[in-house]
Nucleic acid binder design. Structure first.
Length: 418
RNA sequence: CGGAGCGUGGUGUAACGGCUAACAUACCUGUUUUGGGUACAGGUGACUCCGGGUUCGAAUCCCGGCGCUCCGACCA
C-alpha cells in the first residue's frame, strides 16, 4: 500500500480525551477512531492488525477441530427466557431494543443460548459428538464504565467457541486441548511470556474457570503468580484454594493483569434448559456437556500496544503488524531514489511481502517519526545516501538500509538481493 | 451507579466579566529544504457542547441538560 493513498493521517498530539497508552498511540498513528466512550471504529491499519490477530486465532481453532460460523447479533427474548438470562436483574449488560411489531430484541453479549438452541436441530446422537463451533462476532455489553481505550469497550469483537461433548470426561479432554491452543495463540501473538493461565471464578457454572491473564499495568485484574508459573486470580484466592493447589501465600507474587482469554466449563446448564439432548449407545437421552472459550482480539491488540510500545510509538510483533515492511523513500532531485524505491515496492509486493510504501512528498524526519509511531517491525530506507553506499558489492545499484524496530539494528542490503 | 475533573477552528492549548476570540499544529498557494517533524510569505477554517438565567456587556458567573476522562463499585 502506498502511504500517499492511505486516508488516515498521523497526529503529533494525543487527543485530550484519551489517557490510556493504547488509545493514544492507536489514534495518533491512525489505527482507530473513537466513536463515543467505549466504542471504536477500526481504520485500515487497525483492521489489518485486528485481522492478523483474528487469523492466528482462527488457525488454532481450526487446528483443534473448531468449525467456524457467524451467528446473528440480534437476539430474540424467547431463547433467553429459558435460561432466565433475559432479565436485567440477572444480566445487567444487555442492550435491548424492539422490533416494529413490539417484540423485544437484545444485542448479543454472548451466544450460549442461540447456539445451544440451534444445535438442537443438529445433534441427536452420540455419533454427532464431540463437536466444537466458533465465531468472530461483535458483542455488545452495556458496561457502566468503559475504560482503558480499546481494553474495555461496549462493542467489541470476540472469538467465542463452544464445545459439545457426551460427558464430563470427554469434555475435560477437549478443555485441555483448548487450553493448550490458547497458550499457543498468545505465544504466536508475542505476549506468551507475560501471559499466565490462572484459576478464576467459575461464575454460576462451575467451581473454576481458567483465565488467560497478561501482566500489564493497564489491566484491571490482580493475579498472584507462583514460582512455577501457575497463577491465581485475586477474586478466588483463599486458604482452601491455596491448599488445593499446594501453594503458600508467601510464595506468590502480585501483579496487575489484563484478561485476554477465558475458558469455562458450562456443563449441562444450557443443554438442559434449552433441551439439547442426544441418544447414547443404550438409546438413552442425555443432555450434552458443554464448554465455552473466549478471546477478545481488540483487547489483545490493546494489550500488545501497552506491553511493547516505547517512547517513539507502537512496536508490533511480526505476527500482528499491519505490514511486514515499511519502505521509506527519501526522494532526490533526479528521481533516482523514486525509481529504485518504486521498483523495490513492486518487487516485494509481487513476492507477497506486505509493504507500506512511504512515497509521500515530505521531509525525512517526518517519515521516520511516522514510521516509528506506526510500529512496523522492519523499516527499509532508500535514499541518495543508501544508493551511493559501497556495500552494494558486485550487484551494483546501491543498498537499502534495513532497520529493526525492536532492536534498532541496522543492516545495509544490496538492492539487487531482494 | 457514587465521587472528582474537564468541554474553545480538524488536533493541542490561550484569553481579568469588556476591542474583530489569540497561539501552535494540521490544511490550501508559492518559494525553499531533502537522513530525525527545514525556513519564509500569503490564505481557509470557531454561533467558545446545548438550553436557560444574571449583566450595559458572558468563552468567562449561576442553574439545568448532554458529552468525555479519571477513582471507586460492577464485570455471564
Amino acid at each position: 500500500m502506498k502511504q500517499s493513498k492511505l486516508f488516515t493521517k498521523t497526529r503529533r498530539e494525543a487527543p485530550k480525551d484519551e489517557v490510556s497508552k493504547n488509545a493514544q498511540l492507536l489514534i495518533r498513528a491512525g489505527y482507530i477512531h473513537k466513536e463515543m466512550a467505549g466504542v471504536y471504529s477500526y481504520l485500515p491499519l487497525g483492521l489489518r492488525t485486528l485481522n492478523k490477530i483474528v487469523g492466528v486465532i482462527r488457525e488454532e481453532m481450526d487446528a483443534i477441530g473448531g468449525q467456524e460460523v457467524h451467528l446473528a447479533a440480534l437476539q430474540s427474548k424467547s431463547k433467553w427466557d429459558a435460561t432466565k438470562r433475559w432479565s436485567d436483574k440477572e444480566v445487567d449488560v444487555w442492550f435491548k431494543t424492539k422490533m416494529k411489531s413490539g417484540d423485544e430484541l437484545g444485542l448479543g453479549f454472548t451466544h450460549e443460548e442461540p447456539l445451544t438452541d440451534l444445535m438442537r436441530g443438529q445433534i441427536s446422537s452420540y455419533r454427532d459428538l464431540p463437536l466444537s463451533v466458533y465465531q468472530f462476532q461483535t458483542k455488545f455489553r452495556n458496561e457502566t464504565r468503559a475504560k482503558s481505550g480499546i481494553m474495555r469497550t461496549r462493542e467489541f469483537l470476540m472469538k467465542d467457541l463452544y464445545s459439545f461433548n457426551v460427558d464430563e470426561k470427554a469434555h475435560a479432554e477437549f478443555y485441555e486441548k483448548a487450553k493448550q491452543a490458547y497458550v499457543k495463540i498468545f505465544g504466536r501473538l508475542g505476549i506468551g511470556d507475560q501471559t499466565y493461565v490462572t484459576n478464576a471464578s467459575g461464575g454460576s457454572f462451575s467451581k473454576f474457570s481458567h483465565e488467560f491473564q497478561t501482566v500489564c499495568d493497564a489491566g484491571e485484574d490482580v493475579i498472584y503468580i507462583a514460582e512455577d508459573g501457575r497463577a491465581i486470580n485475586k477474586e478466588v484466592l483463599n486458604d482452601e484454594v491455596l491448599e488445593d493447589l499446594k501453594l503458600k501465600r508467601t510464595d506468590l507474587k502480585e501483579a496487575k493483569a489484563a484478561e485476554v482469554g477465558n475458558i469455562f466449563t458450562l456443563g449441562t446448564r444450557f443443554s438442559e434448559a434449552l433441551g439439547l439432548n442426544f441418544k447414547d449407545e443404550a438409546g438413552k437421552s442425555r443432555p450434552v456437556f458443554m464448554g465455552s472459550y473466549g478471546i477478545g482480539p481488540g483487547r489483545v491488540m490493546g494489550t500488545i500496544v501497552e506491553l511493547t510500545a516505547d517512547d517513539k510509538g507502537i512496536v508490533w510483533p511480526e505476527s500482528v503488524a499491519p505490514f511486514a515492511v515499511h519502505l521509506v523513500a527519501l526522494f532526490d532531485e533526479e528521481g533516482k531514489v523514486k525509481k529504485v524505491a518504486d521498483e523495490l515496492y513492486e518487487k516485494l509486493t509481487s513476492k507477497g511481502v506486505e509493504v507500506l510504501y512511504d512515497d509521500r512528498q515530505c521531509s525525512a524526519g517526518e517519515k521516520f517519526g511516522d514510521a516509528d509511531l506506526i510500529g512496523i517491525p522492519k523499516r527499509y530506507v532508500v535514499s541518495e545516501k543508501t544508493l551511493k553506499s559501497s556495500d552494494a558489492g558486485s550487484l551494483g545499484g546501491g543498498s537499502v538500509e534495513v532497520k529493526d524496530r525492536v532492536t534498532g539494528k541496522v543492516d545495509m542490503v544490496p538492492v539487487g538481493s531482494f
